[in-house]
Nucleic acid binder design. Structure first.
Lengths: 336, 336
DNA sequence: TTGTAAGCGTTATCAA
DNA sequence: TTGATAACGCTTACAA
């Protein structure tokens, strides 16, 4: 199959040579156009499959101007939350005939920039991006490049014309906090994400709003910022001063639970915990973490469909803000 | 930036027109070749970046015959084990200048076939595949297509010339079982994976080997096959007759733990559990599952480097079988 | 119903 | 040091 080191790919020309028809006829026949006689068509199809022909979409793209690929660019696919999103995105994209380039940013702005350039270089038709949000730079660059894109999970409130699919983080943060308050908690530790990330900021905002509504004084020392790529918050978790924790993500929540347990504290008897993302929707674990569920499948499907719609020239897109729910779990109890 | 609906991509020609040089000169300058004077070069580079030029790798591929892309095809990226592998693969690939297409098979042979064809269509330079293994069909097809590929995590013992990176599943299964035996267990339930999957078969083989070595009679009824895409094994788990469980994967192990807990059994006091994959290397969880650790990073890195080596024409590749270790956890105790 | 030729954006060959 | 031209494999407009 190899000739002088280079892989021999079967081309239209090979089928043409074999059948005696022209390249054009082969092309038309293979795409089932109705200007080729049934006879010739089936003869060509047979020969093509005998030779093991597959469309060369590189050449096709060259001619047609699109690649039927999208890029999915996010922080870290090994984070279950992103993994679940990506699964649904790939699935939906594939249903629509699109293939997915996967690129990690590791939440680093430079890597994000490189990822975006890689995507553009490969002529992807569109990009789904969970932005690092260190600054607006990379998204501005994207905008200028005029490539269709959709943000997922995070957005820039001040940027106009940037489409996004997010969940209602303010509401989610609010209901998580409210849920704890209704269980009698008043000293609620917030393990927040970095302030430059919109979802972190808005969950915190929801937290503060709930405190205010329930006339609980906001205490600065009860808000701790956990780095976004951190999986172990042992050094960050205060020894005491709170009866409940609201964590920015399930990853952080589980880690906090682990640290508490190592310190001899019981969950939920001593400390209640609520997380965000509900990764247990995919992962069957013995102990259930109470979590704000963000409908990952819906978010993924919406973002793909939104992107494809933009690719197809639709200018008037509504941003999508998906509802959240409390997924109850044993990590929260009434205060004793 | 858009003209009549189509995105305007900056081409070499645009830079040529702007600077007055020929396309050839631009191309050489941009690639830093030393047959262009420094003056012209820097002038061209400046203009290129002003216009926002990025290489069109589609056109480049067309000409050069390679795409600098690889496909990663596996069962389900939302499975943390695969997610971690994929993260490392993408990271390593990117270091070597390759971009990654992500394709899920959902452990279905037809979807696998479609994924392979999609990959080939997009002219990937190589494929990393965790095969469905319903049959040898798709891998035979791959072999015939002559595209470089490497299997990861699973292999076909009877197929010659198919390169793979796996962990030592027999040894892993053996040491897991031995570990339980040394903790006094003799009635060990094996929650096995489907028999057509090599890793499942070999872990089971290790289990049987260990039983034999320790003179424990093999009991057919203690081996249960859990479907590979199953995340909930509640209907499959026997009520009693065992004091320990060896699960094919951590996913299954955690699920079993959950079911046991729902049934009022304590882990490890009543039942000990050991899993496989050690996904807690990435995920901080309060309760630690004892698990066979399979060095996912090493496996991923090796598979990428192996693939790239094959792409570069290396014919003599050794298959890699990676060692396993027991990652201790509180889910196993001495029998009481 | 089928064939010819141009063109997508790049790189390589050869000439100036 | 720079420029003209062909070629990669495909689709499309037009010709036969």
């Amino acid at each position: 199959m190899r000739e002088n080191g280079k892989r021999r790919i079967v081309r239209l020309k090979d089928i043409a040579d074999k059948t005696g028809y022209s390249i054009n006829t082969i092309s038309h026949a293979l795409r089932g156009m109705n200007d080729i006689s049934e006879e010739t068509k089936s003869y060509i199809l047979k020969t093509a499959s005998e030779l093991g022909y597959v469309t060369n979409s590189i050449a096709q793209s060259m001619r047609l101007g699109y690649t039927k690929t999208i890029a999915v660019i996010l922080g870290d696919i090994s984070n279950p939350h992103f993994a679940i999103l990506t699964k649904e995105i790939e699935n939906t994209a594939s249903k629509h005939g699109y293939s997915v380039f996967l690129l990690n940013t590791n939440e680093d702005e430079d890597q994000e920039e490189r990822a975006l350039k890689t995507a553009i270089q490969h002529n992807v038709d569109g990009i789904i991006l969970c932005p690092v949000q260190r600054s607006e730079k990379n998204v501005r660059f994207l905008q200028k490049s005029d490539i269709p894109f959709v943000l997922i999970g995070r957005y820039f409130p001040e940027m106009d014309g940037v489409r996004y699919t997010i969940c209602n983080d303010v509401r989610g943060g609010y209901s998580a906090t409210e849920y704890l308050i209704r269980h009698g908690h008043r000293k609620i530790l917030m393990l927040s994400g970095p302030a430059h990330i919109s979802s972190a900021k808005e969950r915190l905002q929801g937290y503060r709003q709930a405190l205010a509504d329930y006339r609980i004084e906001y205490d600065d020392s009860l808000v701790i910022e956990v780095p976004i790529m951190e999986t172990d918050c042992s050094t960050l978790l205060p020894e005491d001063g709170y009866t409940a924790i609201f964590a920015f993500s399930d990853i952080v929540a589980w880690s906090a639970w682990k640290v508490l347990r190592e310190r001899g504290k019981r969950v939920p008897e001593d400390i209640s915990i609520i997380g965000f993302d509900h990764i247990q929707s995919r992962l069957s674990l013995p102990y259930s973490l109470c979590s704000v569920s963000s409908y990952k499948a819906k978010m993924s499907i919406t973002s793909v469909e939104m992107l494809i719609s933009i690719i197809n020239g639709n200018k008037e897109m509504e941003n999508i803000i998906i509802d959240t729910d409390i997924a109850k779990g044993e990590s929260v109890s009434f205060i004793s």
